[in-house]
């Protein structure tokens, strides 16, 4: 998945984690919710914040800050949950991404997007689809299907034994 894949102008939703601006293709986004009560699921890594009730459906929520090695997302007036539709093993799954704030919907032409640098982003390069430029600021365009891939989330399975990255594992017996 390289930048060469981006050949046409696409709309993105931008959001902030700390000072950094990230973007997800708008086609992946279903809606944006205000922060709501999240039920923690025991024996799962901390970045898996838990589950919420989305109109009668139980939807998992991932703390993007914890996932990317930052501190836990605090609940502020701007905190929100971006509901995305991703493809897990070929099945469409709905997930929530917890972010500090949602910025705007932007349009980026392909020529405004550069490949991700190999170092310096503190993120795994395969999570990054490209770096967009806007008003002298960089926007990290996420490869959201990779971020939320089975392998990434299936840490759940070993959570009892292996501490999740960026947080302490739940104490076992």
């Amino acid at each position: 998945m390289s930048v060469s894949a981006i050949t046409e102008t696409t709309q993105y939703l931008t959001f902030k984690l700390g000072d950094e601006v990230f973007a997800i293709e708008i086609s992946k986004v279903r809606e944006v919710l205000d922060f709501t009560a999240i039920t923690k699921v025991p024996r799962t890594p901390d970045f898996m914040r838990g589950v919420i009730n989305l109109r009668g459906n139980v939807v998992p929520v991932v703390d993007m800050r914890l996932k990317f090695g930052m501190t836990k997302t605090e609940n502020t007036v701007n905190t929100c949950i971006i509901i995305v539709e991703i493809s897990l093993d070929g099945d469409t799954t709905v997930l929530g991404a917890l972010a500090d704030s949602v910025q705007e919907v932007i349009e980026l032409e392909p020529d405004k997007i550069e490949p991700a640098p190999r170092i310096g982003t503190r993120l795994r390069t395969d999570f990054i689809k490209g770096m967009g430029k806007r008003d002298d600021n960089f926007i990290i365009i996420l490869e959201i299907d990779k971020v939320f891939s089975v392998d990434e989330l299936s840490l759940v399975r070993d959570a009892g034994d292996v501490p999740a990255p960026g947080g302490e594992g739940p104490s076992g017996t």
Binding site: V41, R43, G56, N57, D89, S154, V156, R157
Partner: peptide, 14 residues
């Protein structure tokens, strides 16, 4: 009963 979905597959005890 609502399933927790694919993400929590393999989770034991819940």
């Amino acid at each position: 009963i609502k399933t927790l979905g694919r993400v929590y597959k393999g989770l034991e005890g819940i």
